[in-house]
Amino acid sequence: MKYPGNIIGPCFETGDLVTFIFDGAEFTVRLPIVPNNKHNQDTVTCNRDFRGIDTRDWDINNQERPCIQLATQRWSFEDANSLDNVALCKLYLSVVEVTPAARKKNILLEVKTFKEIMLNWIAYATEDHEEQYLKDSNWPASANRFHEKVIEKEHLNWLRYELCYLEGTMPRPFAVAPINSRFVMMTRIEIDSLHYAGRQNPYSKELLRKFEFELFDDFLSHFDLRYSPETIAIIQSLKS
């Protein structure tokens, strides 16, 4: 991906390949090489094998479901002309476990139910922003399915949404993908404009927001999620 203007920084093409193994699936991502800097973060979970894993000591998400951060990264993009840090980029990649009942029903592996459960999960934590939707019908909300976009895949499609995490901030890209009947992958990227006192950032907020979405799509394009023949058989049976 070519970055806009003179922006330079870590890129996914040259990132490290990291593979996580699940029951019936193998998930590979490219994580960018984050430079060593005071404010940067580059954390990848030590555990790469999640087959038959016990999730009782995991963190819990806002719906009290066990979850783990596969990777959390934070770095600054620079302007090649001035070498100023112009944008702060935060990358989050995690998996969340569904309830035993949902697992039994294979709801993550069925296109329709996957879409509905994800919409419900997202709407659960975004009630506060419905007010914004009443003022602006283009604002992502349950009514417009948070600008849901289907990312076509061979067996099961992934979903991309636009979500607002904090009041007063613009919606950010967020994506989900079903890993197996037990886990769903969630990921997001956030880009914020950086400023030094007395210096103007040459990149507008609009440009950086566009860059945020393009970078996120680029990140997703480097994902490789492969299902085992058994998982594919379940997906096919649920389709019919």
Binding site: D59, N61, N62, T72, Y92, V96, A125, T187, S193
Partner: peptide
């Protein structure tokens, strides 16, 4: 990044972050 000063509390989001 220009965030305003003041008190912030940690809130766990849907992805656990």
């Amino acid at each position: 990044a220009g965030s305003s000063p003041g008190l912030y509390e940690p809130k766990i989001s849907r992805d656990g972050a």
